[in-house]
């Protein structure tokens, strides 16, 4: 038993010591570059008045929703948000095409023991191509994952709110 535990600790130490958690910024840049097949880009904030902010289902700040610009042309948008699982928050990234259809979703950090299944690329693909015209009803439009129901429902609801927020911003000609 003692030897087993020592071996386990030593191997874990090596695994951990050389593979730190990524900061979100690096991850976001990497994902955007990979998704749009570009090497360099800049971003611009969307300015939302305080009055309008109160109307939105999701809070939009200078840093959580941005336009992606490459070679002086806008090519899309991205949003980073938090959703709640069973006992902790998780962070996610949504990348949009210029027409504000979802191009990619990535779970940036999932912290709790259960529910990490929602990071599955195949599962998240269900959202790709959807716009605010689509409905996001859990287990109807979006199939769930057994064993990760709470987190899967939670992100589905957040994305529904996000799309409704985008709809309002579009109506106000801010996007």
């Amino acid at each position: 038993m003692k030897n087993n535990i020592i071996i386990l600790f030593v191997s874990i130490f090596f695994l951990v010591a050389f593979k730190p958690l990524n900061g979100f910024e690096k991850q976001i840049i990497k994902e955007i570059e990979k998704t749009f097949l570009i090497n360099d880009f800049s971003t611009a904030s969307i300015s939302v008045t305080n009055n309008l902010k109160n109307e939105l289902p999701l809070n939009i700040t200078d840093s959580n929703f941005k336009k992606i610009i490459s070679n002086k042309n806008a090519i899309g948008y991205y949003y980073t948000g938090k959703a709640f699982g069973k006992v902790d928050y998780f962070d996610y990234l949504v990348i949009f095409n210029l027409n504000l259809s979802i191009k990619k979703i990535k779970i940036l950090a999932y912290r709790e023991d259960r529910g990490g299944e929602i990071g599955s690329k195949r599962w998240l693909k269900q959202f790709v191509g959807k716009t605010h015209l689509n409905s996001f009803e859990y287990n109807k439009d979006i199939m769930g994952i057994s064993g990760a129901t709470i987190s899967a429902k939670s992100i589905t609801n957040q994305l529904d709110k996000l799309m409704k927020t985008i709809q309002i911003l579009q109506l106000k000609k801010l996007l």
């Binding site: 535990i5 386990l8 779970i107 023991d113 990490g116 299944e117």
Partner: peptide, 19 residues
């Protein structure tokens, strides 16, 4: 006990191993 677990997003796999 003690062990490790995690999810692999690329292959949609959750693994767990414990003593």
């Amino acid at each position: 006990g003690i062990g490790i677990n995690g999810t692999l997003d690329n292959v949609s796999l959750k693994y767990q191993a414990y003593l």
